[in-house]
Design a protein around this nucleic acid. Structure first.
Length: 885
RNA sequence: GGGCGCGUAGCUCAGCGGGAGAGCACUACGUUGACAUCGUAGGGGUCAGAGGUUCAAUCCCUCUCGCGCCCA
């Protein structure tokens, strides 16, 4: 027999191993089933599972298990990402603790060290995914720096280079002066920072004593100024355009130009132009032919392009000195406090320095066009749809993508240089050597580009590189494009857009048909989880304490579209309680001979053949539930699926069906008992199937315990016939539920002790109500705690009246009844109905309503009006009887 | 500044043109061999505000206020 409560810790590991070892997660490329593919977004190889992972992988696993049960050949392609910068930072920090630097080791030793770290910690995240129940096809696990995937990276790089879509260029880039690497625009985090606005006087050449005041948040870059801009329509400065000013501290003459970039409202309205150290200034400089003078070295220390006294100073040290010097020389007009956006590296936290360097770029605009079109014409659809705007917005304004990084951990760029700096791009060094030899007419020495590629360059290829591309593998043919990509909105730009671009370019088709964007997981008060706030909820800790299924069910239930998830432990407790509820229902079924595939259950049982109304009713209700859950999962409404199941299991199956059928199971009518056992077993088996994608462990365990054949993970998804639904049975049982609920409510209202059994008198029952009462007499007696049910033509004394569709129910409570209180209770109810009746009357008397509303709506209103009137009249009669008595 | 989203019960959220819902919390009472991780019942809301469209608005449109996020 099942234990009293479900103990996840005794079940989860055992079942997961059983699934994995049986090959239940494996795709079947050679089979005949239609494929269903989800590419797992590869987590960082050295990372560990956080709440966001728990959400995204739970949702993916739900879809995979659902479609697998629906008969699809499900491939959930797992793997991990080398996460260039993130991993390099981790290992560099480890070295720092040993008092060493990356440079002390040298490139080869450093990379070896990272591989060692990967070997040590790389299994963590995949072990944690297993704890979450993720049914990924593990033997197909890939890593972005695998041999195969690295070859794909080189093939893509070389191809795009030859197509002119990858090129080398000298541009202003985002430079991290501590890590000494460039990063892409997306990796820049603009943070609001309190700073100052310095107003500096630039003397106008040829007009002694006159100054042009410029306002800047970065006075130290003035050493690289090559112009000053004012707005073309700014009358204050109109006469200065075309003149020159003499740069303080430097002495260089620089022109005043008219450019709309200068905002007359901001600061003094005049801005210094430093083309080599500001992205906007770079553009202004280009428009006006201004020189770009680079004043920083790779450490953001001032270089030889500045006056000698400032050379070698770190940028913020230089700032202080320059401000002091300007002040001393009378060039500083004023200083204001100002909050401005300062670019930081999102990983290292360092302040970014815009810096002119040679880097590799990818022509993202060219690749973006097909990606935009594919979403425009619906080849790929975002769910929720509104994220398409975000996608379009970014792709339509996309800038060249800087793909080179001055790191060691990653895919080294397949470009080689000869001594003259000529570049040879090829998939291998040998090939590059051949190209060089051809060019020079003899073999020459080459050195490979030191840089590596942006991590996202390889992730962008994930949907096809994991399937064996560039080889034409059967997997590639079969599983590309994937069906759904499940991910968070924060990587639409980083990853989704780039997979779209590369997929379309190299595979000629989108990488996935649907992109399901889920929300962020926040804490219970809606705050973002972070280490510094100390509000992190660890999914593994939750799994330990509440069980994996409770966590999964909770997350699914909270996954409403377009809304962030505020997770509280109370919710998970609710999920755990639900698991216990289901467990106990199954336990009850087992005790009563209703195990799904036990001896009591004929294998050819068809619930449509049931004779008892209660069994016909639950069969139909199960069908309705299954239909709803299927529709919900098909449309990514995980919340709806969870809620439907919760309410059906708890509110319908446990609260009513199991209660209704207890007397049958305990009774001695063999046929009725057998039918009920079979029905209970049948419903329970379907419920285990329907719940399995959300709660895989609990359902699998129950499946086994109750004698299910094979493994539930491989069972078929319930596809129930429409004629299971029996409207008459549903109406009848709904009536009984309403009658019982009504009687219970009255009892509570007048404080009848729960244990007391009271007689019920039924008055003025119509034929349907009378027969329902007769057929379900036992249910009413037991669940409403009645001693007797009698029909009466006359009103009994001392009764509490209530109306249930077609009958007046009078609960006899004897002499204890307080007549005044009862009159008040009835009057209140009558008053409520009168209010409803006024509303209906108003509507039904409105000619516009009758003329314009849909006929079925009018009928419905009429029916409701009639029902309300009838109920009101019955209550009024009861009231009158008391008043008369 | 541009864009997206959100204000519904004490809290967290569904619903999104015709009867205001769930979970949790709260109150009262607990009975029947699945379950106290439970049962039964109850209280609690001018659906942010103001206009408009409509026979009908929590739902559609406009504006206002408040909050969040993304991009500049």
């Amino acid at each position: 027999m099942l234990e009293k409560t479900y103990r996840p810790e005794t079940v989860e590991t055992r079942l997961y191993e059983a699934w994995e070892q049986s090959g239940a997660f494996a795709a079947d490329p050679a089979g005949a089933r239609r494929p269903y593919t989800i590419m797992m977004p590869p987590p960082n190889v050295t990372g560990s599972l956080h709440m966001g992972h728990a959400l995204t992988f739970t949702l993916q696993d739900i879809l995979i298990r659902f479609e697998r049960m629906r008969g699809r050949d499900a491939l959930w392609q797992p793997g991990t990402d080398h996460a260039g910068i993130a991993t390099e930072i981790v290992v560099t920090n480890q070295l720092a603790e040993e008092g060493k630097t990356r440079g002390d080791l040298g490139r080869a030793a450093f990379i070896e060290r990272v591989w060692a770290w990967k070997a040590e910690s790389g299994g963590t995240i995949t072990r944690q995914l297993r704890r979450l129940g993720a049914s990924a096809d593990w033997p197909r696990e890939r890593f972005t720096m695998d041999t195969g995937l690295s070859a794909a990276v080189r093939r893509v790089f070389v191809t795009l280079y030859r197509e002119g879509l990858i090129y080398r260029d000298k541009r202003l880039v985002n430079w991290d002066p501590v890590m000494h690497t460039v990063i892409s625009d997306l990796e820049v985090d603009n943070r609001e920072t309190r700073g100052k606005l310095w107003h500096i006087r630039y003397p106008i050449e040829g007009e002694p004593g006159r100054y042009l005041v410029v306002a800047t948040t970065r006075p130290e870059t003035m050493l690289g100024d090559t112009g000053v801009a004012v707005h073309p329509e700014d009358a204050r400065y109109a006469d200065l355009v075309g003149k020159t000013v003499r740069l303080p501290l430097v002495g260089r003459l620089i022109p005043v130009v008219a450019d709309p970039y200068a905002d007359p409202e901001k600061g003094s309205g005049a801005v210094k132009i430093t083309p080599a150290h500001d992205f906007n200034d770079f553009e202004v400089g280009r428009r006006h032919g201004l020189e770009a003078i680079n004043i920083f070295d790779r450490d953001a220390h001032l270089n030889d392009a500045v006056p000698e006294r400032y050379r070698g100073l770190e940028r913020f040290v230089a700032r202080k000195k320059i401000v002091a010097d300007l002040d001393a020389a009378g060039f500083l007009e004023k200083v204001e406090d100002q909050v401005s956006m300062v670019p930081h590296h999102d990983r290292s936290g360092e302040i970014i320095e815009p810096w002119l360097t040679d880097q590799w770029f990818c022509n993202a605009a060219a690749l973006a066009k097909p990606a935009i079109e594919a979403v425009e014409c619906g080849q790929t659809v975002f769910v929720p749809r509104q994220w398409e705007n975000t996608f379009f917005e970014w792709l339509r304004n996309i800038q060249p993508w800087c793909i080179s990084r001055q790191l060691w951990w990653g895919h080294q760029i397949p470009a080689w240089y000869d001594r003259d700096g000529n570049v040879f791009v090829a998939e291998t060094g040998e090939e590059a050597a051949l190209l060089a030899a051809e060019r020079h007419g003899r073999p020459v020495d080459l050195t490979q580009d030191e840089d590596v590629l942006d991590t996202w360059f390889s992730s962008a290829l994930w949907p096809f590189s994991t399937l064996g591309w560039p080889d034409a593998t059967p997997e590639l043919k079969r599983y590309y494009p994937g069906d759904v990509l499940v991910t968070g909105f924060d990587i639409i730009f980083f990853w989704v857009a780039r997979m779209m671009m590369q997929g379309l370019h190299f595979m000629g088709d989108v990488p996935f048909r649907t992109v399901y964007i889920h929300a962020l997981v926040r804490d219970e008060r809606g705050q973002k989880m972070s280490k510094s706030k100390g509000n992190i909820i660890d999914p593994l800790d939750l799994i330990d304490r509440y069980g994996c299924d409770a966590v999964r069910f909770t997350l699914a239930g909270l996954a409403s579209p377009g809304r962030d998830i505020n997770l509280s432990e109370k919710r998970v407790e609710g999920g755990r309680n639900f698991a216990t509820k289901l467990w106990n229902a199954a336990r009850y079924a087992e005790i009563n001979g209703c195990a799904p595939f036990g001896n009591a259950t004929p294998p050819d049982f068809d619930p449509r053949q049931c004779r008892l109304t209660v069994n016909r009713w639950i069969g139909g209700a199960t069908r309705d539930c299954a239909t709803g859950v299927t529709a919900a999962l098909e449309t990514f409404r995980f919340d709806e699926a969870a809620h439907l199941l919760y309410h059906f299991v708890w509110g319908t199956f446990c609260d009513w069906y199991l209660e209704f059928t207890k007397p049958i199971l305990a009774g001695d009518e063999a046929a009725a008992r057998a039918e009920t056992q079979a029905t209970t077993a049948w419903v329970l088996a379907r419920l285990l199937c329907l719940l399995h994608p959300l709660m895989p462990f609990l359902t699998e365990e129950l499946w086994h315990e109750l004698g299910g054949a094979g493994m539930l993970i491989g069972a078929a998804w319930p596809d129930l016939p429409p004629d299971l639904h029996d409207p008459e049975a549903a109406a009848e049982m709904d009536w009984i539920v309403a009658a019982i609920s009504t009687i219970r409510a009255i009892r509570t209202e007048v404080n009848v002790p729960p244990a007391a059994r009271l007689p019920l008198v039924v008055r003025d029952a119509d034929a349907a109500a009378a027969s329902r009462i007769e057929r379900h007499r036992e249910h009413l007696l037991r669940l409403a705690r009645l001693s007797d049910i009698a029909a009466a033509g006359t009103a009994p004394a001392g009764g509490l009246a209530a109306v249930v569709d077609g009958a007046t129910l009078i609960l006899r409570v004897g002499d204890v009844i307080d007549l005044a209180k009862e009159k008040a209770r009835l009057a209140k109810e009558i008053g409520r109905l009168d209010g409803d009746l006024r509303k209906f009357a108003g509507k039904l008397a409105n000619p516009d309503f009758l003329a314009k509303a849909k006929p079925e709506i009018i009928d419905e209103q009429r029916q409701r009006e009639a029902d309300a009137r009838r109920d009101r009249d019955r209550l009024q009669a009861a009231y009158d009887r008391i008043a008369a008595g």
